[in-house]
Simulated assay, not measured.
Amino acid sequence: MKPTLLIFPLMLFSLVAFADADAVKTVAATDIVTKTSPYSVAETMNKFESIVKTKGLEVFARIDHQQNAKAAGMEMNAAQVLIFGNPKTGTPLMQQDAAVALDLPMRVAVYADKAGDVHIAYHAPDSLAVNFELKDSAVLPQLADALNKLTAAAITTTP
């Protein structure tokens, strides 16, 4: 066997043997909850934002990706993101693992797919427990329930 062929297994062994397991964290796949809306992207997001504000949550930003694409000389289907939250909900999660700040405040996207169907979507809060050190968090089920209700209200049709 050639000496150069022996080097590769030794290099691979050294990477495995001397790697610091705590230095790199692999994040699990995130679950995304998606619901179909009977309204346009703008109508759905307007309803959702109004509901969020009515519930006393703070809206930090509303991003219109289609407008931003147009400004860059590009085209895309309508897509908007609302960034919102409540420090009383998010702070306890960040006290458990400050890295959860990467996913907070919460974000909800409303977008039109290639077929023109409109969807409202968000990361399932339960996925935060997988991606961060949030074992036995009482906040996550409450957050999941709240997001489910808020997004359902935004797409509910009234006769």
Rank of each mutant, 00 (worst) to 15 (best):
T4S: 15
L10W: 09
L10N: 04
M11H: 02
M11C: 10
L12Q: 11
S14C: 11
L15G: 10
F18Y: 11
A19Q: 07
D20E: 08
A21Q: 14
A23P: 06
V24E: 04
T26G: 11
T34Q: 12
P38F: 07
S40T: 11
S40W: 01
T44Y: 06
M45A: 00
N46V: 04
S50W: 03
K53R: 13
K55M: 14
G56V: 13
L57D: 11
L57V: 08
E58V: 15
V59P: 01
F60R: 12
A61I: 06
A61M: 12
A61P: 01
R62A: 10
I63A: 13
H65K: 05
H65P: 01
H65C: 00
Q67K: 12
N68R: 10
G73S: 10
G73F: 04
M74T: 01
M76D: 00
A78K: 10
A78N: 07
Q80A: 07
Q80E: 10
L82P: 00
G85V: 03
G90A: 05
L93R: 03
M94K: 11
M94Y: 09
D97A: 05
A98P: 02
A99M: 15
A99H: 08
P105Y: 00
M106W: 06
V108N: 00
A109T: 12
Y111S: 04
K114E: 15
V118Y: 05
H119L: 05
A121M: 08
Y122W: 09
Y122H: 10
H123G: 05
A124C: 07
P125H: 07
S127R: 06
V130S: 08
N131D: 11
F132S: 01
F132L: 02
E133T: 14
L134E: 06
D136M: 09
V139I: 15
V139F: 01
L140Y: 06
L140H: 02
Q142S: 06
L143R: 01
A144N: 02
A144L: 00
D145F: 03
T151M: 01
A153I: 09
A154C: 01
T157V: 15
T158I: 11
P159H: 08
